[in-house]
Design a protein around this nucleic acid. Structure first.
Lengths: 210, 210
DNA sequence: TCATTTTTGTTAATCAAATCACATTTACAG
DNA sequence: CTGTAAATGTGATTTGATTAACAAAAATGA
C-alpha cells in the first residue's frame, strides 16, 4: 500500500512514537535491521500488529529480511516532524507545571516548552529553566513571534473552560489538559485529557475487577 | 441485568471514575436526579453508552424518570472503594515525583501517597508533605505495617526493570509508570504506562493527521 | 543456480466497543 | 384513573482494531 491512500487508524498513529523511540534506541545500540517478531518482543506488541501499522506508511520491509532500522527512523521521523522543534506553551505553573518546565522534555530534543503563563501575580516574572512566567493575556502577542504548536494546561477545573475559550480564540488547535473536566471546543480543536487521579483510580480498579 | 453476571468491559470500568466524580459534583450542586441525556452532555459521552455502562452495575434507573444521583454515587462509590483510603507508594522523587507528593491527590481524599523512595542518598531522610523519603530497600518492611494498594513510579527507563522486579518480588500488583519502556511482569501484575512525552507527541500527531 | 527458509504484506476471521432502534416501563398531567 | 410523553435497558447492528492464516517475495546456504 502506498502512503496516505487510506486514513491511518488512530491506534496506529498512537503507536508511532513508541516505534520511533524504540528504533532510535536500537540504532544507538548499533543495530541496523529488525524483524517484526523481534520488535514485538521488545515493545510487547504482536508482530502482526506492527507489520500492519508499518504498512500504512508504505512498503517498508523486505520479505525474508525484515526492516532497515535507519529507513524506518527516517520515514517515521518525517511523519513526527522530529527535525523541526515543536514549540509548546505551558499554562498553569503550579507544582506540576513547574516539574514539567524543569524537565522540559529534555530527552526529546524536538519538544520544548518555550513560553509559560500563570494567573498568580506573585510568580509572574519568575524565570524557570530560561522560560519567563507571563500573564496569560500575553499569549496572543507571543503567538505572532513564536511558533507554538500546542498548549499544555495544568489549569484547575473551575478556571479551565474560560482559559480554553481564550486559547481557541487565539487560534490554538492542540491542548493537553491535566484536569479531568471535559471542555467545549469547536470540531477543529483537539483536546487530550490526562488526569493523574483518574489514571490511578483506573489502575486500582482494573487490578481489582479487570 | 444483575451485577457481576458478566465480565464488565474494560472501557466501562475506565469510565467509572468519570461518572463518579461528575455525579458527586452534581450532588454538591444540589441536584438529585439526572437522565442519561443530560449527563451525556456534561461529560461528552453518548447517552446510550452511559446507559449500557450503568446497566452492568445493576438496574439503576427508572423509565420516564432517569437516575437517582445519590443512589448512583452510593453504588459507584462502593465499587471504587471510596470509603477506605487507598495507600500508594511513590518511587522516584525527582521533579515530577516531588510535584505528585506535594499535590498528593488532595482533591481525592481516598487516594494518598503514604511512602516515598528514592535511590539518591542526598535526599533520603528529607520530608515532603509529611512523607519521609526512604531507600527503596525499605519498601518490603513497610509493606508489613502499611496498606499499600499500588505504586507510582517515576523511575527513569534504564533503572526501571530492576525496580519493577523488586516490586513484584515484594508482592506489589499495581504499578503506574511514567516511563514509556514496557517492563516484564507476571500475568498477575498490572502495569499502566503514562508517558508525558508520548502524550504530547500523540496530541500533535493526531491534530496533524487524525 | 536452486531449494529451503524466512519474513513480509494482506485477506479473512475474530473480538470488543459504540451506536441504533425499539419494546417496555414509569412518570405525570388532565 | 387514564392516556400521553419520556426515558430506560437491551437485542441487533455497525464500526474499528486485533489477530490468524497464508500467498508472495527475498535471502541464504549448499
Amino acid at each position: 500500500m502506498t502512503p496516505q491512500n487510506k486514513k491511518i487508524p488512530r491506534m496506529s498513529l498512537e503507536r508511532l512514537p513508541i516505534y520511533y523511540r524504540t528504533l532510535c534506541n536500537l540504532a544507538d545500540d548499533g543495530y541496523q535491521r529488525i524483524k517484526s517478531a523481534q520488535l514485538g518482543k521488545i515493545i510487547q506488541i504482536e508482530p502482526t500488529t506492527i507489520r500492519r501499522d508499518f504498512s500504512y506508511f508504505g512498503d517498508l520491509g523486505k520479505s525474508g529480511y525484515g526492516y532497515d532500522i535507519g529507513h524506518l527512523i527516517e520515514i517515521f521521523g518525517m511523519i513526527l516532524e522530529v527535525n523541526e522543534t515543536q514549540g509548546l506553551a505551558l499554562i498553569g505553573v503550579g507544582n506540576l507545571g513547574r516539574a514539567l518546565l524543569i524537565n522540559n522534555f529534555r530527552r526529546n530534543p524536538n519538544l520544548e516548552i518555550i513560553t509559560a503563563y500563570d494567573a498568580d501575580p506573585a510568580i509572574i516574572g519568575e524565570t524557570i529553566n530560561d522560560v519567563i512566567i507571563q500573564p496569560l493575556a500575553d499569549l496572543q502577542a507571543d503567538l505572532s513571534t513564536k511558533q507554538i504548536k500546542g498548549v499544555i494546561s495544568t489549569v484547575p477545573s473551575h478556571a479551565l473552560q474560560l482559559v480554553v475559550d481564550y486559547l481557541v480564540e487565539c487560534g490554538i488547535t492542540s491542548i493537553l489538559s491535566f484536569a479531568p473536566e471535559p471542555v467545549n471546543v469547536p470540531e477543529s480543536v483537539h483536546v487530550r485529557y490526562l488526569d493523574l487521579t483518574t489514571e490511578v483510580q483506573n489502575l486500582l480498579l482494573l487490578a481489582e475487577l479487570g
